[in-house]
Design a protein around this nucleic acid. Structure first.
Lengths: 191, 191
DNA sequence: CGGTTATATTTGCTCAAGCAGTCGTTGGGC
DNA sequence: GCCCAACGACTGCTTGAGCAAATATAACCG
């Protein structure tokens, strides 16, 4: 439904000019709507599947971030920086997940202000139970909906938008991690 | 690291060797991450701008939906169906906006169970003050980040994902969506 | 050292949102 | 006309999240 470029005549003005029939139906708003609804749709699908495994979306994000980090652990602050949560939000999620046995707190040996959130064995097991279904959902509702070129184009576009708009929440995620790896198998030992 | 190569003896390859570092960096998860982070980034930018005009993202969505509806009004239930809110959520957001003078409730003449939420003059004025800046934000952080073809490709991909995954409104109502014009932003995490 | 500032986490408070239940209203079947 | 299921809006309750203050520790600087 190429609502936006209904004709291919090169134009001086913007791509949306002719379609503005009503201020509130502006195609720019529609574009945002597409992105937001795609997000909402996927979010709902994922939430439903995660719930079957007793995880909320936030908990899944937390445990995934931890599980991909060295030692299956992160300091609370770093965890907050990598997720959509504030530090107090992280405190409370970790509270709940600790109560449920999925995580443990561990004191940082070099800085007594800090503490690590560590995935327990039970947490890793839960994650391993959940992940295959989750990946299946992603394929079913997202990546599998598009052929490879379309998917690549979509991801390229998203990456640009993300890089432009994202308020540096993933600051420390992909870069080299100068932090020394503290004791990989501690998770099993502590509990 | 030390766990796996604590001594230099060549090890037998275990089933998990390639997974311990990779499973959680699966490109499918990365793809979802891009979409979600793009959404989060835009959402944060929009929220900041709307806040300057005294509107939350939800309030903006509500007032926009109403403003594009005939008579600048909708029944509460219909408003709920068009937004990311449940009916009780709509009740409360309309409460607040009515208190702030942006909306009014009006009794439905034909069905005394129903009531309409109507945008007041003050509400329309607020929206008109807010909208240009909002559109500017969309261009700045979203549509303006991409050249026309890339934008078209992005929107095409999003539309497919949206059509596949969007649970036809959110809470409760699961009808097909005959409406041609998609939506405005909303739902922050919301999830 | 002693004092000041910065950092890490937790806690109190507030608020927005959903669910489930309530109340009044509607409309169909008889 | 009467009954009852369906519907629309609202309310009580709970939950999850953020902000700001509190607490503890670290780092720095004289």
């Amino acid at each position: 439904m190429s609502k936006y470029n209904r004709n291919n005549i090169p134009r001086v003005k913007h791509w949306y000019d002719e379609q503005v029939t009503n201020v509130f139906d502006d195609p720019r708003i529609t574009a945002v709507g597409l992105l937001f609804e795609a997000h909402a749709g996927l979010s709902a699908r994922f939430t439903a599947q995660l719930e079957e495994h007793g995880l909320s979306a936030v908990e899944f994000e937390v445990i995934t971030r931890l599980a991909r980090s060295p030692g299956n652990q992160l300091r609370m602050t770093d965890l907050a920086a990598q997720t959509s949560l504030s530090t107090s939000g992280v405190t409370r999620v970790v509270d709940r997940m600790e109560r449920d046995g999925l995580l443990t707190r561990r004191a940082c040996p070099t800085d007594r202000r800090s503490s690590y959130a560590v995935v327990t064995a039970a947490g890793m097991q839960r994650l391993n139970e959940t992940l295959p279904g989750h990946l299946q959902m992603i394929e079913q509702w997202f990546t599998g909906q598009l052929d490879p070129e379309a998917l690549t184009a979509l991801l390229d576009g998203l990456r640009r938008v993300r890089d432009a708009a994202h308020p540096c929440a993933t600051a420390g995620s992909d870069d080299a991690d100068p932090e020394q790896t503290p004791d990989v198998d501690g998770a099993a030992r502590r509990q």
